[in-house]
Design a protein around this nucleic acid. Structure first.
Length: 486
RNA sequence: GGCGGCAUAGCCAAGUGGUAAGGCAGAGGUCUGCAAAACCUCCAUCCUCCGGUUCAAAUCCGGAUGCCGCCUCCA
């Protein structure tokens, strides 16, 4: 497959460097609050990347870390009067709850920064020994940015241009404003670890360098994260790791775009974020997943409740098609007519299109387009009285069902059983629209009775009443069914 | 100020040189006691604007305008 590499600003053919599994490291969350949709996007994007690489037959060793020691965690813990470890543990737990429901698979390794303090200290020592870092009298350790010639290569910055932006906070003993902390001397009220420079704690960037090397070995094949990590986080990781190891840190840098709200980046600092749980209160997790995959991962994605409602409609349609396919396939008698060649070709082309889309820099939006095409193709076959019960029709419907399942395995959409999903969706919509369930039930019962008595006038009146309630009734040979007006 | 990204129908969104996928909404039709669903058909001669390269550009180059992001923590 081809993957866009931030380092080269171009799509490149991806293959692992070595004969072993693809080595993939993605920056996870700093555990100090609930995850928002932006975190969900990043998690889903890299989840799909891992799944797709495995689908292509490449084994993947996937590492996604948790930052569990950091200014934000300490500040919040102190504010709430709890231990930092307890705070981060709580939000790691929340992360799992949210992500499990989203269908994000667990990584092979999910290291926490505090479990690798020893590796970080050793890395810092090594950098000092090589002249790439220095300890200050106060017990801090800084990376000497100007000692690393490649600094700026990921983010496209020139060290000379950065001088104006860099600054030294009061009390810092940097040689150069550009230098960044590898180790921070202990301050009162902070968790600390022993080190050659006295008690302190690691700087943020160091953990990813230490854990990548320890768990995967350098260079890793793919290093990922949100676009906001490109600078300074990933730039600094490169500097640390490459200065220490004298070899490449990561071959492919993959960054997902932001989720926006009112055309602005959704972020903690702007305070304009919507948590994953906020969404779950109104929509099914799979709807969120579908929404996140409905545009290319590097493009900005505008969040709105309307956009989510539209995603819900699309997802429902796919599940509805799947439900109808299964119902049709439950038949036992099939006429011997074969599948018309044109339809067989259309099927093959859609299926190939799905694969081609994902092959091209993980174009999930394109892939979903092919999935809709498959659903429509199946619908056409089922609507054709001759084909519907023919061997050829069965062959096609079986193929579409298989393709949709395959999609579910890679994109995580559609992941469930249609009947179950449609029921869950109905329930979800009932709650969201605040439909009076008792009233609905009684109106439905009344209408069923009216229909049994062939009192169509009353039946239609009741349909109107139900519609006013937000419920749409459909009459089928098997009786009336209902759904919530979207 | 430095660096980068994006501009495709009413809305969302694919498409990086060969003549505009898909979804939502909308219109007509088949079906239906009436509806709904489903299916069929239609819905951008054109891709922000202006130049240029080419037999050929939404796709490449230059410029303009608008929006966004990074440069401080941030997925």
């Amino acid at each position: 497959m081809r993957l866009y590499n931030t380092l080269s600003h171009a799509k490149e053919d991806f293959a692992p460097a070595g004969p072993s599994a693809v080595k993939m490291y993605v920056c996870g969350i700093t555990a100090y609050d609930l995850c928002h949709i932006g975190h969900a996007r990043s998690a889903v994007v890299f989840d799909v990347l891992v799944r797709y690489l495995r689908y292509l037959g490449m084994p993947v060793t996937f590492v996604r870390n948790f930052t569990d020691v950091d200014d934000k965690i300490i500040n919040r813990a102190n504010r709430e009067g709890v231990a930092p470890e307890a705070l981060s543990a709580k939000y790691i737990e929340a992360f799992y709850e949210d992500m499990d429901r989203l269908g994000v698979l667990r990584a092979d390794f999910e290291p926490r920064a505090t479990e690798y303090i020893g590796e970080m200290v050793r890395l810092a020592e090594h950098l000092i020994a090589k002249g790439h870092a220095y300890a200050t009298p106060g017990g801090d350790v800084y990376f000497r940015v100007r000692s690393f010639a490649g600094y700026g290569k990921l983010s496209g910055r020139d060290v000379e241009d950065m001088r104006s932006g860099a600054r030294v906070a009061p009390g810092e003993e940097k040689e150069d404003p550009l230098d960044f902390a590898l180790w921070k001397a202990a301050k009162p009220g902070e968790p600390t670890w022993e080190s050659p420079w006295g008690p302190g704690r690691p700087g943020w960037h160091l953990e990813c360098s230490a854990m990548s090397e320890k768990l995967l070995g350098l260079p890793v094949d793919i290093h990922g994260g949100g676009q906001d990590l490109i600078f300074p986080h990933h730039e600094n990781e490169i500097a640390q790791s490459e200065a220490a190891a004298d070899k490449g840190f990561a071959r492919f840098w993959v960054h997902n775009g932001f989720v926006r709200i009112n055309a602005e980046k959704m972020s903690k600092s702007l305070g304009n974020f919507v948590t994953i749980r906020d969404i779950y209160a109104c929509f099914l997790p799979e709807t969120l997943r579908f929404f996140l995959l409905s545009s290319h991962y590097r493009s900005p994605l505008d969040y709105s409740a309307d956009a989510l409602a539209e995603a819900e409609k699309g997802l429902r349609r796919i599940y509805f098609a799947l439900a109808q396919i299964e119902e049709t396939l439950a038949a036992t008698k099939w006429s011997p007519s074969p599948l018309p060649k044109a339809l067989a070709e259309e099927f093959a082309s859609l299926r190939q299109g799905w694969r081609d889309s994902l092959d091209d820099d993980l174009n999930t939006a394109g892939a979903l387009g092919q999935i809709f095409g498959l659903a429509r193709l199946a619908g056409r076959v089922m609507d054709d009285k001759g084909l519907r019960k023919s061997e050829g029709g069965r062959e096609l419907l079986t193929g579409v069902r298989e393709a949709l399942r395959e999609c579910g395995g890679v994109l995580g959409v559609p992941a469930g059983e249609p009947a179950q999903f449609l029921d869950a969706l109905r329930e979800c919509r009932l709650n969201r629209q605040g439909v009076d369930k008792a009233k609905m039930e009684s109106l439905l019962a009344e209408r069923a009775a009216a229909r049994a008595a062939k009192d169509f006038a009353l039946s239609d009146t009741l349909r109107g009443d139900l519609e006013a309630l937000g419920v749409e009734v459909k009459d089928t040979p098997a009786g009336q069914t209902w759904d919530v007006v979207a």
